[in-house]
Amino acid sequence: MRHRREPERENDRKLRGKLQQKQTKSAKRRARKHADKEARRNKDINHKMSKRIVAEAEHSGRGVALEDLKGMRARTRLRKPQRTMLDSWTFAQLGVFIAYKAKRAGVPVVYVDPAYTSRECSRCHHIERGNRPSQARFAWRSCGFVDHADRNSSHNIAHRGWTAWVCGARSAAPELTLIA
């Protein structure tokens, strides 16, 4: 599923490439101006997304579990178009926005290890590479569980967040359930 802002990001990437190829003073000036516009748009989207996530957690009495994505870009091996798309989004900024808004609202935030969340079965928690036959599909032959890969991963993140919350110091509501 493509994000509704995906065509804008693709157009930005194409324009950035064209301007970088020109190497003229005006092209560089226009590229800087466009980069500022892109950054403002991404910041606005991140603010809106973080606001919705924290509001949902606050209204439902839940916390937020996030993957700790430090070093993600160094760990991933992707093709150039995928790398460009991944590198153009500001995951760290979104995490910072969620953290400060959650703190202000009194919503707990837990960071979990992202390792193998996409290969782990959210029902039996068995990890195997074959569980992920395609990018969008998760299927575990042993227990028969089939789900959308991203939804399965989000359940794993929520479970890890809950486990981290229960094992750690509990300073907030004891009936905490997490949103992934």
Rank of each mutant, 00 (worst) to 15 (best):
K101F: 01
R16T: 07
W165K: 07
A39D: 06
K48M: 13
A164W: 04
M72V: 13
V146C: 11
D150C: 06
K18H: 12
K70D: 12
F145Y: 15
R137Q: 13
P133Q: 10
S26L: 06
E8S: 13
A172E: 10
K103F: 06
V112M: 09
A99T: 15
L178A: 13
R4D: 11
A27F: 01
N131D: 09
C167K: 15
E10T: 11
K48P: 09
N42E: 11
A39Q: 12
Q135V: 02
C167H: 14
S118E: 04
G63S: 03
Q135F: 04
C121R: 05
Q20L: 10
G161M: 05
V166Y: 05
S171I: 08
A105K: 11
R75S: 09
K43V: 05
Y116L: 02
A39K: 14
R123S: 14
I45R: 13
A57I: 05
K80Q: 12
H126G: 13
H126K: 15
A57S: 08
W162D: 10
R32W: 00
Y116I: 00
A180C: 03
R123Y: 05
V107Y: 02
R83E: 06
R83K: 13
H126I: 14
I45T: 14
I179K: 03
T163I: 08
H148D: 15
L19T: 02
G168A: 13
S154Q: 07
R141P: 06
A149E: 03
N131P: 10
A35E: 10
R4W: 11
M1D: 06
H155M: 12
T76M: 15
F91T: 07
E8L: 15
C124G: 08
R2Y: 06
R141F: 07
F145D: 01
A180V: 02
R29S: 06
S153D: 04
L19I: 02
C143G: 06
R16A: 13
H125V: 04
P114A: 02
G71R: 02
V110E: 14
E10Q: 15
R2F: 05
V96N: 13
D44R: 12
E56Y: 02
I179S: 03
C121Q: 05
D12G: 09
E56A: 11
I157Y: 08
A57M: 04
R73H: 14
K37D: 04
P81L: 00
T24P: 10
K101N: 04
V64K: 01
P108F: 03
R40V: 01
A173I: 01
A39E: 09
H47Y: 14
D87V: 01
H125F: 13
H155R: 14
P133D: 08
I98F: 07
H125N: 11
K18Y: 08
A158N: 04
K101Y: 02
Q82Y: 02
A173H: 09
L78T: 06
R41P: 00
S154N: 08
D113T: 06
